[in-house]
């Protein structure tokens, strides 16, 4: 029993290390074969559509609702201390620093990331990738790399849209519905949200998340067992691994960005 536990831990470790190594090599390969993506903008544009535009609805709607909730909760709490106008600051800072990049990335992983994994997985299991290779077309350059860059480009834009929608949602609920002073809402926000320290750092975060989610989604798709079950497992792994990676990276990035000097 004890021995079996140790063996299981050992296997997990070995598999984990193998995955990290293979994943890194995979991403290196993707980036090294990027030339075609930028030589043929059509490929790139199609993938922006696939990753970005198709995620737009969920991002807009979720952003709006997160903003509405933040505004409502923030107002209820802040009004006890007589600083209801600071709700703008609260909403903006939470969104721009944390919720925007993180929640947008989580949504992106479940909407676009899983779709990428499924697409690559299906192409693999139905021999489409292999067939492409036999037609002397490199599936990396033709399929995987454009997907990577399309998703990578879309992620920060989606995060920005999410934050903007959230702030508008906060404005709607507190200023338009509850009746907090609109001027104070914006001015307090502008006074305390720093472009460099808050907004840019939030964008940097979403760029890092975008890299991670796209890399994970494509690697899981490429690495899946070429069966129906293998593909569905890979999709699950994409969502789980992406979520863990986003949250862990968020902690690390926050520790670097928002503390100390």
């Amino acid at each position: 029993m004890f021995q079996r536990g140790v063996v299981a831990i050992g296997r997990l470790t070995v598999n984990g290390i193998w995955k990290i190594g293979a994943g890194t090599a995979f991403i290196g390969n993707v980036i090294a074969r990027s030339k075609m993506t930028f030589a043929r903008p059509r490929l790139f544009i199609n993938e922006i559509y696939f990753a970005g535009t198709l995620s737009l609805i969920i991002i807009v709607v979720s952003g709006l609702f997160v903003g509405l909730v933040l505004g409502l909760q923030g107002y209820e709490t802040l009004k006890r201390y007589g600083s209801a106008e600071a709700v703008g600051t609260l909403v903006a800072l939470s969104l721009v620093r944390e919720l925007g990049p993180v929640v947008a990335a989580l949504l992106f992983a479940s909407r676009a990331g899983s779709a990428m994994t499924a697409k690559i997985g299906i192409m693999k299991s139905s021999d489409q990738l292999s067939a492409m290779e036999m037609m002397a077309v490199d599936p990396f350059q033709r399929v995987i790399t454009p997907m990577f860059w399309g998703g990578f480009f879309s992620m920060p834009l989606l995060a920005a849209i999410f934050s903007a929608m959230g702030i508008l949602g906060g404005y709607l609920i507190t200023v338009v519905v509850i009746g907090v002073d609109g001027g104070a809402f914006w001015s307090q926000m502008q006074a305390s949200v720093d472009f460099q320290g808050d907004i840019l750092n939030g964008i940097y975060k979403s760029i890092v998340f975008g890299f991670a989610v796209n890399a994970i989604a494509l690697f899981e798709g490429f690495d899946c067992l070429p069966t129906a079950e293998g593909v569905s497992r890979a999709v699950t792994r994409t969502v789980v691994t992406s979520a863990l990676a986003i949250l862990a990276l968020d902690f690390v990035l926050t520790a670097f960005m928002f503390t100390g000097a």
Partner: peptide, 28 residues
């Protein structure tokens, strides 16, 4: 596809501009 990608990218950059100038204080 082009139309929708255009809408998405425009929305994204409007979002960034909104954050930079309306929410933050890049103008300061």
């Amino acid at each position: 596809i082009d139309l929708w990608v255009g809408i998405f990218v425009t929305a994204g950059f409007l979002g960034l501009l909104f954050l930079a100038f309306k929410v933050g204080s890049a103008t300061n």
